[in-house]
Deep mutational scan, measured.
Amino acid sequence: KRPMNAFMVWARIHRPALAKANPAANNAEISVQLGLEWNKLSEEQKKPYYDEAQKIKEKHREEFPGW
């Protein structure tokens, strides 16, 4: 399985609240909304998620060399 990128790290945190706020929305609609919200963030706001994604990527590389 591929390691999460910065957007996926961010979305994992924000998806539950968005789903709760929009109970009639299906998963595809929630994903679209998450994408729109992510694109509104500044690079500075995204930086912690890029940092976390890098850590996940490095850990994945250690656990699965050659993947």
Rank of each mutant, 00 (worst) to 15 (best):
K1Q: 13
K1P: 03
K1Y: 04
K1F: 05
K1I: 11
R2G: 15
R2K: 04
R2V: 04
P3S: 14
P3V: 09
N5L: 01
N5A: 05
N5S: 14
A6Q: 01
A6K: 01
A6D: 01
A6G: 08
A6Y: 00
F7M: 06
F7D: 06
F7L: 01
F7I: 01
V9T: 06
V9S: 05
V9R: 09
V9Q: 03
W10N: 01
W10I: 00
W10D: 04
W10P: 02
A11R: 03
A11S: 13
A11P: 00
R12H: 12
R12E: 14
R12P: 05
I13A: 11
I13L: 12
I13W: 11
I13K: 11
I13Q: 09
H14Q: 10
H14T: 09
H14E: 08
H14K: 10
R15H: 02
R15G: 14
R15P: 01
R15K: 13
R15L: 07
R15Y: 05
R15A: 09
P16N: 09
P16L: 09
P16E: 12
A17P: 05
A17M: 15
A17C: 07
L18Y: 13
L18P: 02
L18T: 02
L18M: 14
L18F: 14
A19N: 06
A19E: 15
K20T: 08
K20V: 06
K20E: 09
K20R: 13
K20M: 13
A21D: 10
A21H: 04
A21N: 03
A21Y: 15
N22K: 04
N22C: 08
N22A: 06
P23L: 04
P23F: 00
P23I: 00
A25Q: 07
A25R: 09
N26T: 11
N26G: 09
N27P: 10
N27L: 04
N27G: 11
N27Y: 12
N27T: 03
N27F: 07
A28D: 12
A28F: 12
E29Y: 03
E29C: 01
E29G: 01
E29I: 02
I30Y: 01
I30T: 00
S31R: 11
V32D: 13
V32F: 15
V32L: 11
V32E: 14
Q33K: 14
Q33A: 10
Q33L: 14
Q33C: 06
L34G: 00
L34Y: 02
L34A: 05
G35A: 13
G35P: 04
G35N: 15
G35E: 15
G35F: 09
G35Q: 15
L36I: 09
L36V: 14
L36W: 08
L36A: 11
L36T: 12
L36S: 07
L36C: 10
L36R: 14
E37P: 00
E37T: 07
W38N: 01
W38L: 01
N39Q: 12
N39M: 15
N39I: 01
K40G: 06
K40I: 03
K40N: 15
K40M: 07
K40Q: 08
K40P: 00
L41Y: 03
L41K: 01
L41T: 00
S42P: 07
S42F: 00
S42A: 05
E43V: 10
E43I: 09
E43R: 07
E44D: 12
E44N: 04
E44V: 07
Q45M: 01
Q45T: 01
Q45D: 06
Q45G: 05
Q45P: 00
K46Y: 00
K46P: 00
K47Q: 13
K47Y: 00
K47F: 03
K47N: 02
K47G: 05
Y49W: 12
Y49K: 00
Y49T: 01
Y49P: 01
Y50R: 12
Y50K: 07
Y50V: 09
Y50M: 07
Y50P: 00
Y50N: 03
Y50G: 03
D51E: 14
D51C: 07
E52N: 09
E52A: 05
E52D: 04
E52L: 06
A53G: 03
Q54S: 10
Q54A: 10
Q54K: 12
Q54I: 04
Q54V: 07
K55F: 06
K55P: 04
K55V: 06
K55M: 04
K55A: 12
I56N: 14
I56F: 07
I56R: 05
I56G: 11
I56V: 11
I56Q: 09
K57W: 07
K57Y: 15
K57E: 15
K57N: 15
K57A: 15
K57Q: 15
K57M: 14
E58G: 12
E58M: 13
E58S: 09
E58C: 05
K59R: 08
K59Q: 11
H60I: 09
H60L: 10
H60V: 11
H60Q: 15
R61E: 08
R61L: 11
R61W: 08
E62T: 15
E63V: 07
E63Y: 05
E63K: 14
E63A: 07
E63M: 10
F64K: 15
F64P: 13
F64C: 09
P65A: 10
P65C: 13
P65K: 10
G66P: 10
G66L: 08
W67R: 15
W67C: 13
W67H: 11
W67N: 15
